[in-house]
Amino acid sequence: MRAVVLEEYGEPPAVRDRPEPTADPDGVVVETEACGVCRSDWHAWQGHGDWADDRVPIGQVLGHEPVGVVREAGAAVETVDVGDRVVVPFNLADGSCPACRRGRTNYCEDATALGFGPDAPGAFAESFHVPRADINAVELPDGVSSVAAASMGCRFVTAFEALDAVAGVSGGDRVVVVGCGGVGLSAVQVAAALGGTVVAVDVRDEPLDLAAEMGASETVNADEVADMPALVRESLGGADVSVDALGSAETCRTAVDSLASGGTHVQVGLTGEDDRGEIPLPMDEIVQGGLTVRGSRGMPPARYGDLFRMVATDRVDPEALVTDTVSLDEVPDRLAAMSEFDTVGVEVVTEF
């Protein structure tokens, strides 16, 4: 089968032939219908993450936002069957660790990550394997398209979990989203759907225009404002919730400094080479303002039903974030475009 393989950090990945996967007794093989192209794939391609013992190995098949049809199911699989359309979280849980037993499968202590770990070749491929399918493969409702499901895969579910479960956004909350890439735009749409008043911040006008379409009440080009947090405090009285959807010292500090007293900052963006996992925070202000700083990663598959119901009732529309569909052969170029922030919205591979 054809697959996108990481052969050298920072050099264009190659489309290579790889052996077809076979199903473990508790796993399924999925024929890929669509797979989102995510900035986390870009981080993997760049070789980031060694500071957190999270560097993707050379030889990895990339791709972690898939949807597809079950082609083969192991004898022990009970929840899905051959022919079912499924969506798969990037964090593949084992279901038995202490975190999993508490329902926090997105923080599984023995997880592997689809498209990032050597035991989990990714979905920039004609097919891929899902271990422990009863936990990690979720049947897709008929009304959700493959492109919409792929756009949910990592970024939309991450935004939903961060704002709904972690920050508890509800009607009237003032929400600032810093960074309007795929996860940031997802956060704008989700926060608006939950009843928040959303300010979207970026340094590019095109994603800010898309953020307005996704429900942002106000958009701010940070390059055109001397003191962005002061502007938020002046226009909103400060934010109840802030999100750093990029992952840099500048964007994180901008988000935290935008908070009102008692506010919550949720970090979803992972850092790059400049910060290497370490971002200084204004700890005295956090103490004096009673602020909360939390991290959020992915979403437990058990919560997918909540999101599917929001899609079915038109409260959210993940497919509205999709600005382009591409082929497997175009993936290397689309990753390279992310180095210059030359992408807008979500791009999805639909031709394999």
Rank of each mutant, 00 (worst) to 15 (best):
274 D>W: 08
93 A>C: 06
79 T>C: 11
203 V>F: 06
105 T>A: 09
228 M>E: 09
71 R>L: 11
335 L>T: 00
10 G>F: 03
278 E>T: 15
340 E>M: 15
56 V>R: 02
95 G>M: 10
204 R>L: 14
192 A>D: 12
6 L>S: 03
54 D>T: 01
78 E>W: 05
310 M>V: 07
346 V>N: 09
51 W>K: 01
204 R>I: 08
19 P>V: 03
156 F>C: 12
55 R>D: 12
285 E>D: 12
338 M>I: 03
24 D>K: 15
311 V>P: 05
8 E>W: 09
164 D>I: 07
233 R>F: 00
79 T>D: 13
148 A>R: 06
117 G>H: 14
188 V>Q: 00
311 V>D: 00
135 I>L: 15
335 L>N: 02
344 V>T: 04
31 E>N: 06
21 P>K: 03
265 H>Q: 04
194 L>I: 08
251 T>S: 09
16 R>E: 11
275 D>P: 02
282 P>N: 07
87 V>A: 06
27 G>R: 09
137 A>T: 07
331 V>Y: 02
122 G>N: 09
24 D>L: 13
238 G>T: 02
351 E>C: 11
305 G>K: 11
303 R>I: 09
183 V>N: 03
255 A>K: 09
26 D>W: 05
93 A>K: 00
255 A>W: 05
212 A>L: 10
259 L>A: 02
321 L>I: 08
173 D>F: 13
332 P>T: 08
9 Y>S: 01
38 C>P: 05
263 G>Q: 04
72 E>P: 10
103 G>P: 04
10 G>N: 06
277 G>Y: 11
149 A>T: 00
243 V>A: 08
316 V>T: 04
262 G>N: 09
319 E>N: 13
213 E>M: 09
349 V>M: 03
33 E>G: 04
338 M>F: 03
12 P>Q: 05
21 P>L: 06
271 T>D: 03
230 A>T: 01
138 V>K: 04
170 S>V: 13
80 V>Q: 09
179 G>C: 00
242 S>I: 11
27 G>V: 06
123 A>N: 00
78 E>I: 11
110 D>V: 15
193 A>D: 02
150 A>V: 08
349 V>P: 02
343 T>F: 08
224 E>V: 15
208 L>T: 02
76 A>F: 07
52 A>M: 15
57 P>E: 06
277 G>E: 01
26 D>L: 12
42 W>L: 03
245 A>V: 01
130 V>C: 07
71 R>Q: 13
218 E>H: 12
195 G>A: 07
96 S>G: 15
69 V>K: 05
230 A>D: 08
200 A>L: 01
46 Q>M: 12
79 T>Q: 15
89 P>F: 00
13 P>Q: 10
280 P>K: 15
268 V>M: 00
31 E>V: 11
168 G>F: 10
63 G>W: 02
66 P>I: 00
73 A>R: 01
216 A>H: 14
205 D>T: 12
68 G>I: 04
92 L>T: 00
340 E>C: 14
171 G>Q: 08
18 R>Y: 06
344 V>E: 10
113 A>V: 15
163 L>N: 01
7 E>N: 13
232 V>L: 05
38 C>V: 06
257 D>K: 06
